[in-house]
Amino acid sequence: MIVAERKSLEEIRRTIAPYERVLIVGCGTCATVCGAGGEREVALLHAGLRAMEARSGEGWHTFLEFTVKRQCDAEFLDALVDRVREVDAVLSLGCGIGVQAIAERFPTLPVLPGVNTSFMGMAKEWGVWDERCAACGDCRLAETAGICPITRCAKGILNGPCAGTKNGKCEANNEMDCAWVLIYQRLEKLHRLEDMRRYYPPRNFRVIPRPRRIVSKAEVAVGGNNG
């Protein structure tokens, strides 16, 4: 799941400044699950902005709110068609993908991000989210006992642990587990400790050509008898 975090009210205030009527749009999928941009956060941001306007004494914005099922699919954005007619800008609480999807769907509408898209991760417990995947496009989890050193090691090294590990914690943050110690312990449980002895050649650090695209449909010619 994509994890995001609300931007500061000050930043949001600056970005919405030119627009009088602003529609706050939540996303009912990842942004809801990570507690950054679901219907509840939309309501909270709305209340916060209104309070800010009221207290500053110079409020002239009007806000509307709406939450769609998922911002990153154009079909779900059809629900916004009537609503965006009445506003000057959209403040999206979806991830960066959602912001762009709305921008693509409504070519003449200013779309502003209300959250910072932070990482891909999961809930550790209620209210705590941890990064788990860097989307590096070259998954090595089979060799590292299902624990990703790219995201969970501060250095992202493939042959750990480094000398900075101490009592199972990382030198960069002594509250953070050393990913390589975790990998060692889990390999031990899997009776595959010999995997620790192997040398893993460096990853391909060449810049990934962006934007990436995956085509899963086959190229087929329709109409002939296809051979």
């Binding site: 309501a43 909270l44 916060g48 309070a51 207290r55």
Partner: peptide, 13 residues
């Protein structure tokens, strides 16, 4: 009581 209830009170003075 939710956070937005509290903020609503501040909005209303």
């Amino acid at each position: 009581v939710e956070a937005h209830h509290i903020l609503r009170a501040f909005e209303m003075g």
